[in-house]
Amino acid sequence: MTTILMAGFWGWFEAKAGIEALGHSGPADWCYGVTYAVVLLLGLAGLLPRRT
């Protein structure tokens, strides 16, 4: 769901980078993988103890 909600970002990314991110049926497969990896890394970073 997050990947689809980020369609505006993927359109901007495609225009800037020249890498096809949006097709006629929605975001490309690799967009889902990138979004999943970012969400996973942010979640794992939240589990790390913070130093004060």
Rank of each mutant, 00 (worst) to 15 (best):
M1A: 14
T2N: 09
T2V: 15
T2C: 11
T3Y: 02
I4D: 06
L5A: 09
G8H: 03
F9L: 07
W10Q: 04
W10P: 13
G11F: 06
G11Y: 12
G11L: 10
G11T: 14
G11W: 09
W12H: 14
W12V: 15
W12N: 10
F13K: 00
A15T: 14
A17R: 07
A17G: 04
G18N: 00
I19G: 00
E20L: 06
A21T: 10
A21M: 08
L22G: 07
G23E: 02
S25H: 12
G26M: 12
D29E: 07
W30R: 00
Y32S: 07
G33R: 11
G33W: 12
V34A: 07
V34C: 05
T35M: 14
T35D: 13
Y36L: 15
A37E: 15
V38P: 06
V38W: 08
V38D: 02
V38C: 09
V39R: 07
L40Q: 14
L41G: 05
L41V: 14
L42Q: 03
L42E: 01
G43A: 01
G43T: 06
L44M: 08
G46D: 11
P49M: 04
P49E: 02
R50Y: 02
R50N: 01
R51H: 11
T52R: 08
T52D: 06
T52A: 13
T52L: 07
